[in-house]
Amino acid sequence: MSELSARFQELLGLLSTSPALAIVLTFGAFFAGNRIFRLLKQPVWLPPILISAMLVSGMIAVLTIDYADYREGAQWLTVLLGPATVALGVPLYQQMHHIRALWRPILFTLPVAATMAAVYAVVIAASLGASEEVLASLAPKSVTAPIAIGITEQLGGSVSLMMGGLLITGMLATLFVDLIARWLSITDQRILGFALGLNGHALGTARAFEIGPTAGAFASLGMGLTGVFTAMILPLVFHL
């Protein structure tokens, strides 16, 4: 019996150093996460990525695999993030014609709102005594994940903490846009969509597509413009 468990340990050691196990875990959790999300009737407060991430962390805890080992095995997935970030330029180009329909509010809103999305969080966290690393991880909280990863690495933050902040921001932005829009009686799909994409990145955009195709298009535009704007501005102003 003890011999068998020794062999089992050896097997785990072997598997956890090869990328195959990390791939199976990630892909498996991806499909399972999506399925569970649909089974639960697509709750806003529990996006599929969070379900999948919990499944992966549960699995690597059960299999006693080091997070660092898992991360190294899954590295080749991370390599694809570069081209995937470039790919975001395609929907941005496809939604660009919407700017003509609403250029004035977009021109006045985007620079201020995208900057403030970062400033509010950083100032509040700093006044509560958060460290420099935490501030660098919170700054890109309204930016879509692939761009935000690049920003956090440039600023010297923790990618994992940033990802958590990103998820919470996306969920809260979806909730707050609904509440505040009702309070200010805003029903214009273009405004709702733009606010969802600007503040809530991919999660907000997913919600916007539920409201309607116009809201979805403006959310994609808001998300893309916020990503580009923040990526260019934040590294310049953060260290001031």
């Binding site: 990630t26 991806f30 992966v56 991360r71 899954a74 993030l81 990863i149 990802m163 998820l167």
Partner: peptide
Amino acid sequence: VLVLLIMPGVVGVFFV
């Protein structure tokens, strides 16, 4: 498949 690509980073939240 962006969700798949960012997953290794998201998993890290539970370890920090």
